[in-house]
Design a protein around this nucleic acid. Structure first.
Lengths: 226, 226
DNA sequence: ACCTGAACACCGTTCAAGT
DNA sequence: ACCTGAACACCGTTCAAGT
């Protein structure tokens, strides 16, 4: 396991734009409280003032440790994938891929609020880039030709992140509507295909099973790229 | 083409929770201005006060036509996929799927701000449910067994929406970092696989070509489900 | 039916000042 | 190095009142 995004490790105080500020422990505390707020009450409940109040400090005190609200959200974004297992390179590539995908899904499910940031920010953090490094390695191990590795990594990640964020963020809820509700929200229009499939559509979805089935499909797609 | 989500069509003043309010034209104007703000300045620039100011009216005047900020965002969400072509049923299923996917991508690209709402809200609007109806029909035409139609529709949609929202929302930008930048943001850690792939990773990405290639992969996956 | 005005409880962020 | 206090320009939403 590699835990966190590197507490004392990050000696560069200006990773890209300059203003990272302070050395770590106080900033980690701020980001930790922000993550708690996001986990418990959603991303919109994350405010400088609410964080400051929980720390027993003035809102302005935060600005010495964090690059404003936007910088704080960047930090939150970086931490969604902040605790991922290193993959066992002795396993077959597809087993490594399953393990990595399950870990990413679990991490996103435990931070549904912050995970919404994934689609509105570039995947540029330390952890994110290491995850991509691992995925590239697995793709090559699977026999994907070098010129196609980047696209297939993006295809796999897009599905994986899309699935997990949909689960936690709300796109997949409320599971499925009943046939009656569907008819109503369609404005009374006929939905003949829905009605023909009612037997299947009215069952509750087993999201764990769906994730595993999708995962096997995506693995088959990578296997076929050889 | 079916345009809009139904101006005078929506006679039910309470689709699910009661407070839709007013008959249409004024609400359409409000939502239109909100969409302009989201398109031009991002989702966070959408505020009741900014909309009211553009309309030359008091913020409170909006509450007669729209169910608060949250209701307004629901409306915006519903309109992202609000102008989609009806598919030509005489075409082969895979051609229908290509046409539908390209239309969805185009619609999301023209509303990148509002498209971020896709992953945090259930896909329950009128248009959304009609799109799903079309996708179900195409899946059946492709020979997907009835018990597997819903999962495969979600798998396809998750990729499609994930790709398009990533493009417009920022996950895919700034394209790819240079090898040097990658090394820096990884905290100085070695990225041997990245470096081995540098020849490919340092090229700019052709997103249109990538979308088409992914689309063919997803179609192959559906074809394989027979 | 549609809109206003005042008010309330919030935001993020600046600046100068304190220790 | 770290924090405060006052101030500024914003938010969404309530309520009672106007026409």
């Amino acid at each position: 396991m590699m835990r966190g995004t590197g507490k004392g490790t990050d000696t560069s105080k200006g990773t890209s734009k300059g203003k990272s500020k302070s050395k770590g422990s106080r900033r980690d505390e701020i980001v930790g409280i922000a993550m708690e707020l996001a986990d418990d009450q959603g991303l919109r409940a994350v405010s400088m003032r609410a964080i400051a109040e929980r720390m027993g400090v003035t809102p302005m005190a935060l600005y010495a440790h964090v690059d404003g609200k936007e910088g704080l959200l960047d930090e939150l974004h970086g931490r969604v994938l902040g605790e991922l297992p290193v993959l066992d390179r002795d396993l077959p590539w597809d087993e490594q891929l399953r393990a990595g995908a399950r870990a990413v899904r679990a991490s996103i499910r435990s931070h549904p609020g912050a995970s919404l940031l994934i689609f509105e920010r570039p995947a540029m953090g330390q952890t994110a880039i290491r995850v991509v490094e691992e995925l590239y390695r697995v793709m090559l191990a699977a026999g994907v030709p070098a010129h196609d590795v980047a696209r297939r990594e993006r295809l796999f990640s897009t599905w994986l992140l899309g699935f997990a964020v949909s689960e936690g963020g709300g796109r997949f809820s409320p599971g499925r509507l009943s046939t009656r509700e569907r008819r109503a929200t369609a404005g009374g229009a006929a939905l003949p295909v829905h009605e023909g499939l009612a037997e299947w559509l009215d069952r509750p979805v087993d999201w764990d099973a769906e994730f595993e089935a999708d995962l096997e499909d995506m693995i088959a797609l990578i296997r076929g790229a050889r």
